[in-house]
């Protein structure tokens, strides 16, 4: 266990934000879960008691008949905003006094940094470069992430859970978002920041960053495992495998979605449903491709003269 190495990584000035973000995220997930749980309990109670549902104010927070439903923005909101601004300023001041922004040697195109890392919030995408060609990891994926986020309001047809925390009313939507945000985005950033060392090799936390380490990995393409050698054969084989993933995966997701979200399934138009399927399967394909690489040393699945997947 190389504690010095671990400390060097954890305390590197630019890594501090991601170190700070993990407990912050844990805290806010707890806060959200607490309120979602309280609301879910209330929803269950109201669903079982029609009389109460008519008179209850329908929030987990207490409310008494005499209380005003609205409060003045001044001072009740503005004082909070003012306080928040002061607290953020204090945090920022203390942080800026105690920790210096990094400044390396002057830029030198002849001396490559090893590892050369992007800013922490892009490390998830940089990590993707291990598993995909640059045009997918660097161009297609960011585009898909942005478009995928943008279509969310138009494909989520569930009218429940608008304006309050809940889990039971929106299991599918929240589960999917947590998978995309926590598993794919944040943990990829975590790997890129803390695990990847010189040569973008995998170093466990506490393992010394050995700049001379060589790993003799033989990554093979999937068609090679099946003894396919001709270019045409590889292209067709890859198309069948990738197409098969979308077909079989799509059918599996369809079977699941139809049973567990019958109302959403009924509400969705064909266009909404196909967009949901496309993005969901692409997102699921990501960890599958990663596992193929990490566990089975498979580089490409689909090889064509124009692109490789």
């Amino acid at each position: 266990m190389d504690w010095k190495q671990l400390w060097e990584i954890l305390s590197a000035a630019d890594n501090v934000p991601i170190v700070a973000m993990i407990p912050l995220l844990a805290f806010y997930m707890y806060l959200a879960w607490k309120q979602a749980h309280a609301n879910d309990v209330l929803i269950e109670q109201l669903a079982g008691d029609a009389a109460l549902a008519k008179t209850h104010h329908r929030k987990a927070w207490p409310f008494q008949p005499g209380w005003a439903k609205e409060v003045h923005v001044w001072p009740f909101l503005l004082r909070i905003e003012f306080l928040a601004a002061i607290i953020v300023t204090i945090i920022l001041m203390v942080w800026s006094i105690t920790l210096n922004a990094p400044l390396e040697e002057p830029a030198n195109p002849n001396l490559t940094m090893n590892p050369a890392k992007a800013p922490w919030y892009f490390l998830g995408l940089q990590e993707m470069l291990v598993y995909f060609d640059p045009w997918i990891a660097g161009v297609v994926m960011p585009t898909l992430i942005i478009i995928g986020l943008m279509v969310i309001p138009y494909i989520d047809t569930n009218p429940l859970g608008s304006g309050y925390y809940t889990w039971k009313q929106r299991k599918f939507a929240i589960g999917t978002f947590l998978f995309g945000f926590i598993i794919l985005w944040v943990s990829m950033i975590f790997i890129g920041t803390f695990i990847r060392g010189p040569g973008w090799q995998w170093f466990w936390p506490g393992q010394t960053w050995d700049h001379n380490r060589l790993i003799y990995e033989v990554n093979r393409d999937l068609p090679d495992l099946f003894g396919i050698t001709s270019n045409w054969g590889k292209g067709i084989f890859g198309a069948v495998v990738v197409g098969g993933f979308f077909a079989v995966g799509g059918l599996a997701v369809h079977a699941f979605f139809r049973r567990h979200n019958p109302k959403d399934y009924k509400r969705m138009s064909l266009l909404q449903y196909s967009i949901l399927m496309t993005f969901l399967l692409t997102m699921l394909g990501l960890p599958i491709k990663m596992l193929l690489r990490l566990l089975f040393h498979i580089k490409y699945v689909w090889i064509t003269p124009w692109f490789n997947v």
């Binding site: 830029a107 940094m113 890392k117």
Partner: peptide, 15 residues
């Protein structure tokens, strides 16, 4: 204009 920024932008724009 230091090594950190230079290589981060090099990696980024290489994509």
């Amino acid at each position: 204009d230091d090594q950190l920024g230079f290589w981060a932008v090099t990696v980024g724009t290489n994509m």
